[in-house]
Amino acid sequence: MDLFHSTANISTLPMSNHALFASYDIDEARAEVAEVYCDHRLEIMGQQRFAAQHNRISGTDLSVNVMTYGAKTLISPGALEDFYLFQFPVRGHASINNGANQHDIGGGTSGVINPEAQTTMIWSECCVQVMIQIEKRALIEVARAEIGLPAGATLQFAGANDVRSGEGKAFLGIVNYVMKEAERGDVLLGGGTLLSKQLERTLLVGLLQTQSHNLPDVSLGQTGPMPRIIRTAESYMREHLRAPIMIEDIAGAAGTSVRNLQGAFRTRYGRSPMTVLRDLRLEQAWEELSNPSQETRVTGVAAELGFFHFGRFAEIYRKKYGCTPVETLRAAHRMDGAGSF
């Protein structure tokens, strides 16, 4: 199987020995797809007979999928919310409207759907797509570790990407390898082995390197992979967001001196380690206030994360997120109907 020269049709889709479903019934297909993606609207637009087929192998943080609807179709899932979706048509083409991210893919181009924006797609007749569904959390973690995505920042993809040469072709070569092995009966993803973990990470890094996004090129070019000191330090910080840790504790966990740690963070981010720690704590505060229980209180969240001066906490929170902590909590309660706090 060659993803660039595939003649895939409904009866010979790649990974046919890993079929999720096949159906001529649009309601059945919608229900089956909703089980692994999300609820969505699905409508037939063309004259071609509707004939859906979906093959899928699942890993820990991503899945590789091959899918067709046969007929020209409109798919409107709204916001994907919890996952990014890489799409590469091996036959036909598709038009994607993902908020401000609007593009056409096919003929050697691919694209990624962002989880936050409302999405509508139109697939051409006989369109066959290879898709990688990626947990949002996992891709964000890799983007932070590999290309310096700042804490609290969003990762937004945009436009179509030519993957017929260079790094794009190499990335698809890895996808092709995973699919070929699955066809031979050897699913390399999942299972918790070192190989499967490394392979999934390689796919995520490849996605970041080949698909256009909102991070500047310098993130990939000049800084390269994140130094071990910073990776270890940030991992320690995330594990101790509620603990009263000092810079000496972080340096010790990273196996370096305070001076070297400060230099590494200044070079990478232009900020001190303790400022990065503060931002990680602010991010955690935003997460908890945006997804509250009835018992959630702003003062309690702030205190647990080491912000004992409430006025100062509210000020830096507003500068980072454009609203106060109280406003975040009120909005979350309004949305879920939990009432006042």
Rank of each mutant, 00 (worst) to 15 (best):
A8K: 03
P14F: 10
A19V: 10
F21C: 13
A22M: 09
I26F: 05
A34C: 06
L42C: 14
L42R: 07
G46M: 09
A52N: 05
Q53L: 03
N55K: 03
I57E: 07
V66M: 14
G70A: 01
G70F: 00
K72G: 08
T73L: 10
T73Y: 03
T73A: 09
L74H: 10
G78M: 06
A79W: 02
F88I: 03
F88P: 00
V90L: 08
R91H: 13
G107F: 05
G108L: 09
N114V: 10
E116W: 04
A117P: 06
M121G: 03
M121S: 13
I122Q: 14
W123I: 02
W123R: 09
Q129Y: 03
I134D: 00
E135W: 01
R137P: 00
A138T: 03
L139S: 04
E141R: 13
R144C: 03
L149W: 00
G152P: 12
A153W: 15
L155Y: 01
N161A: 13
R164S: 15
G168F: 10
K169H: 08
Y177V: 02
A182H: 06
E183S: 05
R184Q: 14
G185V: 11
G185Q: 06
D186N: 13
D186T: 12
G190K: 06
L194H: 04
S196Y: 13
K197V: 06
K197W: 07
T202I: 02
G206W: 13
L207I: 11
Q209P: 00
S212E: 10
D217S: 14
S219E: 15
S219Q: 14
L220T: 04
L220K: 09
P225Q: 14
M226E: 15
M226H: 09
R228L: 15
A233C: 02
E234W: 09
S235G: 11
M237N: 03
R238E: 07
H240T: 12
P244T: 04
M246K: 15
I250W: 06
A253N: 06
T256K: 10
Q262L: 13
G263I: 11
L277A: 06
L280T: 04
L282A: 04
E287N: 12
E288T: 15
S293N: 11
Q294H: 07
Q294T: 08
E295H: 08
T296Q: 03
G300N: 04
G300Q: 04
A302R: 08
A303I: 07
L305H: 01
G306L: 05
G306P: 11
G311Q: 12
R312I: 01
E315A: 08
E315P: 00
R318W: 00
K320E: 10
K320A: 11
Y321M: 07
L329V: 09
A332D: 07
M335E: 15
G337Q: 02
F341H: 09
